[in-house]
């Protein structure tokens, strides 16, 4: 029996009267890569933010290794060390070098040894093809390089799961590939991830399980082969059609 990392039960989320997510239940096993897809505004990003406690939820529960993730609670900072998150807008801190960005959490939050952190930083930067960029400032890097550095920043805290929120959406097309390659590599090495993306080919390649969200609820769930080649629901078929140029 695999180990459950995150367990979401009957999650309900609304902004005012506007219901964003209703009755969502998912559990993520160790080593699993889940891709969330769906039309814009279907609540995918909000869902990821709820998992990390960035958004309050109005019903249901999110637990990490059985511990509840509660918005605004003190316990959250501890739980977050086990959840990595990479955002669309690669929010590296512009006043720190790449190495300082990466070392901030392990040094200040996890109080790890400086030398050990330095070594791991260099190792990870090398792994994502950024060897030699440790002392650069974020504004000296391209978008794709910044996003790879942001991935390293979340990797170094050794999270149990990494949440990737449309990490290629703000990138120039020629940089998308280099970032996705890093993610594929992570998937192969057994990193547990939950990914929101609009890159369908990538989704098919990386996912163990695809979850299709529409109108704030899970419409369909399955292996990438099932979902992309033989979608069961009409909504999923309609959605996938928009990605091909035939009508």
């Amino acid at each position: 029996m695999a180990e459950t990392i995150i367990e979401v039960k009957n999650l309900h989320k609304q902004f005012g009267d506007n219901v964003i997510l209703k009755d969502i239940s998912i559990s993520v096993e160790k080593g699993e890569v889940i891709v969330l897809i769906g039309p814009s505004g279907c609540g995918k990003s909000t869902f990821l933010r709820c998992l990390n406690g960035l958004e309050p939820i109005q019903g249901g529960s999110v637990t990490l290794h059985g511990e509840p993730v509660l918005y605004g609670k003190k316990s959250l900072t501890k739980i977050r060390q086990h959840i990595g998150m990479v955002f669309q807008s690669y929010d590296l801190f512009p006043h720190m070098t790449i190495a300082q960005n990466i070392a901030l959490a392990p040094l200040k939050v996890q109080k790890r040894d400086k030398k050990e952190v330095e070594e791991e930083t260099l190792k990870l930067l090398d792994r994502v093809g950024l060897a030699g960029k440790a002392d650069s400032y974020p504004n000296e890097l391209s978008g794709g390089q910044k996003q790879r550095a942001a991935i390293v920043r979340s990797l170094i805290i050794h999270p149990d799961i990494i949440l990737l929120d449309e990490i290629t959406a703000a990138l120039d097309p020629e940089m998308v590939h280099e970032v996705l390659k890093v993610v594929l590599d992570l998937a192969k090495s057994g990193t547990t991830m939950m990914i929101v993306t609009h890159e369908m080919a990538f989704a098919k390649a990386v996912a163990d399980r695809v979850i299709f969200l529409d109108g704030g609820e899970i419409v369909e769930e399955g292996t990438p082969d099932e979902f992309f080649d033989a979608p069961k629901t009409e909504r999923a078929k309609q959605f996938l059609k928009t990605f091909t140029y035939s009508d």
Binding site: L54, M85, D91, F93, L104, I157
Partner: peptide, 10 residues
Amino acid sequence: QIESAESLGL
């Protein structure tokens, strides 16, 4: 910026 710092556990 603040959210990404939060999600690092700061």
